[in-house]
Deep mutational scan, measured.
Amino acid sequence: MQRVNMIMAESPGLITICLLGYLLSAECTVFLDHENANKILNRPKRYNSGKLEEFVQGNLERECMEEKCSFEEAREVFENTERTTEFWKQYVDGDQCESNPCLNGGSCKDDINSYECWCPFGFEGKNCELDVTCNIKNGRCEQFCKNSADNKVVCSCTEGYRLAENQKSCEPAVPFPCGRVSVSQTSKLTRAETVFPDVDYVNSTEAETILDNITQSTQSFNDFTRVVGGEDAKPGQFPWQVVLNGKVDAFCGGSIVNEKWIVTAAHCVETGVKITVVAGEHNIEETEHTEQKRNVIRIIPHHNYNAAINKYNHDIALLELDEPLVLNSYVTPICIADKEYTNIFLKFGSGYVSGWGRVFHKGRSALVLQYLRVPLVDRATCLRSTKFTIYNNMFCAGFHEGGRDSCQGDSGGPHVTEVEGTSFLTGIISWGEECAMKGKYGIYTKVSRYVNWIKEKTKLT
């Protein structure tokens, strides 16, 4: 034993070699072989497995989906700052455009905790909710729209109204504003409101030439003092309507412009014939205590009207009353817009006519005020429907199939267009061939041609 100890002390290297040989010859039971080890760690190889990531292109799944990435790591994937920024906006807080917040056709661009709407022409605001041009839906104005110097929408209202708090709607500024039905039992019968379409306001006024200088022999019209197929109006439903009495009662109609003036057809009036105007009328054979009678003290036909040349060209006249009318729910003026808007309103496509005229061709006159909704007829169809001249200051309205029309005794009465609950004068009943005849239409004086003249002559002093 002493000898062994001496050998170990003198030859430590020998001992180490012996131990190493023993270990190498022993069977290893701690580690699995290569094949079995792979069965336990069965993990798919990654895209760049075996390579240094710093030297390969980034992978979106590896960089940002398996674990949260930084902007720089995302930049490695896209290799483009702009594309990385677009991805980053949604990656950080989701897609803010998912709810489609942009209105009126706006395009949404996502941002971090926010979004941006790219608005089409005519709109602005956070969600493109603000109209900035009158060309689109009248700028959301209830009545009139004008573009300011910086191309912003400025709404306005006709006389007797003021802008509401929203700067879009119009509200009454006087007790009985024009064009409004205020009798409670008839307010439910107000005709369907007309909503502004998209309009090209630059070209809204037709490029028409008034044929002022045409000389033409007097034409022989049949029954051209021209509501057939209409309905009984309720008291106060058309408070701007008046009836004219002269040699015979209810020979023509008219509309209240203001307390002192009536507008009617020029062919209705004769110099030297006494005319009485009755406002607030409903049943011409009954006294309903809503009527107001006034005498006409002055007749002003349009300066281009000449019955000797043509009885229905420039067929418009103004009547001055001896005493002002007292405005109330049964006696209310009709609204008159400017030339541009009167023309736009007419193009809405349908209007209402009213009167006490004959209820059928050569038949009896109506006792109760009649009204009828009539569609506008395109000019080409209008011209083809008659052998008589249709001037540019006239328009056609009615039904091709016949059966409904204005008729004798309705002449001078109103053709009105309702705009968001307020009625505007767009025409004056003038003439036609018979009444409600198939293929024939009622012919009306186009008020847009005469609004400046009306307003100039009827100013209240």
Rank of each mutant, 00 (worst) to 15 (best):
C18G: 05
E86P: 10
K438G: 14
G21S: 11
C117D: 02
L318Y: 00
G439H: 07
K68P: 06
W261M: 02
C396K: 02
C28L: 00
E340I: 15
I136F: 13
C128K: 02
I334F: 00
Y47A: 15
V257F: 01
P101S: 05
V195L: 12
K152R: 13
Q143T: 02
N452R: 09
A250S: 10
F395P: 01
T85Y: 06
S70W: 03
V368T: 15
D110N: 15
T332L: 09
D338V: 03
E79C: 06
V195Y: 11
F251P: 01
I334K: 00
R404A: 10
S220D: 12
G246E: 03
L23N: 01
F55S: 15
K455F: 05
E193L: 13
T158K: 02
W356H: 07
I443Q: 03
S354Q: 08
T194E: 13
S204V: 12
T16G: 10
V183F: 09
S99R: 14
L325E: 01
P44W: 09
G236R: 06
L327E: 03
F348L: 13
N113P: 06
I334T: 01
N245A: 04
V269K: 02
G413D: 06
N304R: 14
F55E: 15
K234W: 13
G363S: 13
Y352C: 06
V183C: 04
F238T: 04
N104H: 15
P101Y: 04
E340C: 03
A397C: 03
S169I: 05
V243Q: 07
F238W: 07
E76A: 04
I299T: 13
A380H: 09
V278N: 04
Q96L: 12
C407N: 04
S49I: 09
H314A: 07
P175L: 09
K293Q: 11
T461E: 15
I214R: 07
S354L: 12
R3H: 06
V227S: 11
V296Q: 00
A317I: 03
S169A: 14
G125P: 02
N36L: 06
G439T: 10
T264M: 02
G125S: 04
D33S: 11
G21W: 10
L189D: 13
F345K: 00
K234D: 11
N452M: 07
K234P: 05
R384A: 15
I136P: 15
T417R: 01
N127P: 02
V4G: 11
N452H: 12
T264H: 01
G230Q: 07
E418W: 06
Y441A: 09
Y391T: 08
A37S: 13
R226A: 06
I336C: 01
L369K: 12
C155T: 00
L318A: 03
Q408D: 14
V154D: 10
V353H: 05
N5A: 11
L211P: 09
N147E: 11
E129Y: 03
G229N: 06
G413C: 10
E27D: 12
L346M: 06
T422A: 05
G246A: 11
V326W: 06
P177R: 01
T29L: 15
E27Y: 05
L321S: 00
D33L: 09
A380G: 13
V296C: 02
K168N: 09
Q237D: 05
L32Y: 15
K274Y: 02
A149P: 09
I454E: 00
L41G: 12
T287R: 07
K274R: 09
I7K: 15
A265R: 01
A207R: 05
W453C: 01
F55C: 05
K146M: 10
K260Y: 06
E79I: 15
C119Q: 02
P172Y: 05
C252V: 01
V227F: 13
K293C: 05
A233M: 08
K168P: 02
A250L: 07
T16L: 13
L211N: 09
I428T: 03
G442W: 04
K152M: 13
V154Q: 10
E418G: 05
K311I: 07
G105Q: 14
V296Y: 01
G179L: 00
L211V: 13
V202D: 08
G413Y: 13
Q96H: 15
K362Y: 07
S49H: 10
A366F: 10
C252D: 00
A207Y: 12
I390W: 08
N393T: 14
R191W: 08
G409S: 13
V368E: 13
L130D: 09
N59Y: 08
C268N: 00
R358S: 14
H267I: 02
D93S: 15
I17S: 01
S406I: 12
T290E: 05
M8W: 12
A337R: 01
H282W: 12
E72C: 03
I344W: 07
D110K: 15
I334P: 00
I334Q: 00
A266V: 02
G357R: 12
I7E: 11
T271V: 05
G58S: 13
E54M: 09
P175Q: 07
E67Q: 04
P414W: 04
R404L: 13
M394A: 09
I275P: 05
N313M: 10
A9N: 13
A397L: 01
L163N: 03
E116N: 14
N48W: 09
A26Q: 01
V242D: 02
K137H: 10
R364E: 15
G421C: 02
Y391N: 08
S411V: 14
T85W: 06
S182P: 06
F176P: 00
C396F: 02
F360K: 13
D410T: 10
E259W: 03
C28M: 03
L24Q: 03
E270C: 04
V447Y: 00
Q241N: 13
C382S: 02
T264C: 06
V447R: 00
A308W: 05
D405I: 14
Q370R: 12
V277L: 03
K168V: 08
V374G: 02
L425D: 00
Y47Q: 10
E281Q: 12
T287D: 13
F424I: 00
E27G: 10
Y450M: 01
A307H: 09
H289C: 07
E86W: 08
V30Q: 15
G229H: 07
K455E: 05
A436T: 14
T445E: 03
Q143G: 00
K438F: 10
C178K: 02
E86K: 15
V202I: 12
S385F: 15
A149C: 08
D249S: 02
V263D: 00
S406G: 15
S107D: 09
Y305R: 04
C435G: 05
A397W: 01
Q90M: 10
P172G: 07
K89C: 06
Y341I: 12
I390T: 10
L189Y: 12
N113A: 10
Y201A: 09
W431I: 13
C108S: 00
H314W: 08
E124F: 13
D232E: 09
I299Y: 07
L244T: 02
A380R: 06
P235I: 08
H302L: 01
Y91C: 05
F71D: 15
I275C: 03
